[in-house]
């Protein structure tokens, strides 16, 4: 028990050090999962304590860069939770079709699986030409992977099934060719995408969006940080704009809950209130 308390002190100090030295702010991430992640990082670095890890990371930027990337989780799929994309297609798209131009923000886009899913969906719904996508993340490796659009071939079977369940109108294989040892998604899907390094913790609002999809990113935040991020979304959305979250996330506990109404309840799609 004593040891664990020391460990918690060390973790706080380590996160503070990472913030001051490298401006990555994990101080208000959900404790249980960041702790698990840090323990793995510590073991991989071959040091016994978080204090030793802190020493290493403060003085060795290369090691720090590696650990900082490791701390953000990069697990994603095409059309993950197909029913979410189906609901976007069936209930949100008809609203979006009434706008002459659209801005869509994929926040915490990871390696681009969710972004490509949206780009495909928007193409099939005839919205592509009027849409500008913003794809943001704090992980540089992920952003680079997202802008390359190459994914392991062995995952295409599962992604194809997701695409079908999500109401896909063609075949997923129409959108990629095989090369570089993977599935290379059509470059034209990324023609209207702006990739940028943006943190929901430390950076400011984006210009007026009609749709924001931020899935499985805020689960890593504590409640205060979630409030900050949802506040950003509220301020970045035009009236009547849409916010989609992950299947087990909710605005119920957010201080901004009043600014949104439930649009598709079971898919966690919210709409910015008019007034």
């Amino acid at each position: 028990m004593e040891d664990e308390k020391i460990e918690d002190i060390e973790i706080r100090l380590l996160l503070e050090a990472l913030y001051r030295r490298y401006h990555y702010d994990f101080r208000n991430y959900a404790q249980a999962s960041i702790k698990r992640r840090l323990r793995q990082a510590r073991d991989r670095q071959g040091v016994a304590t978080y204090s030793a890890l802190q020493d290493k990371l403060l003085h060795d930027p290369a090691a720090a860069a590696g650990v900082l990337r490791f701390l953000t989780v990069q697990v994603s799929d095409f059309f993950r939770d197909p029913s979410y994309f189906k609901a976007i297609r069936e209930t949100v798209v008809p609203h979006l079709k009434t706008y002459p131009s659209l801005k869509v923000w994929i926040a915490g886009c990871s390696a681009g699986e969710e972004l490509h899913s949206f780009a495909i969906l928007f193409r099939e719904e005839g919205l592509e030409d009027r849409t500008l996508f913003y794809a943001t993340d704090i992980n540089q490796d992920a952003l680079e992977a997202a802008s390359r659009g190459i994914y392991p071939l062995d995952r295409m079977k599962a992604f194809t099934e997701n695409y079908r369940l999500a109401g896909g109108k063609a075949s997923l294989s129409d959108y990629y060719s095989t090369g570089y040892g993977g599935a290379v998604f059509d470059k034209s899907l990324r023609d209207r995408v702006v990739f940028s390094d943006h943190s929901l913790v430390t950076d400011a609002v984006f210009s007026e969006m009609q749709l924001i999809s931020c899935r499985n990113v805020m689960i890593y935040f504590d409640r205060d940080l979630q409030d900050r991020a949802v506040g950003l979304f509220r301020d970045s959305l035009g009236r009547g704009g849409f916010l989609g979250l992950g299947s087990k996330e909710t605005l119920r506990f957010s201080e901004h809950v009043g600014a949104f109404s439930e649009f598709v309840r079971e898919e966690k799609i919210y709409q910015r209130r008019q007034a």
Binding site: A30, Q31, S33, V73, E249
Partner: peptide, 12 residues
């Protein structure tokens, strides 16, 4: 979480 709430993760 230490405060007695649930948090979810999509870690490996």
């Amino acid at each position: 979480e230490p405060g007695g709430t649930i948090s979810l993760s999509r870690d490996e």
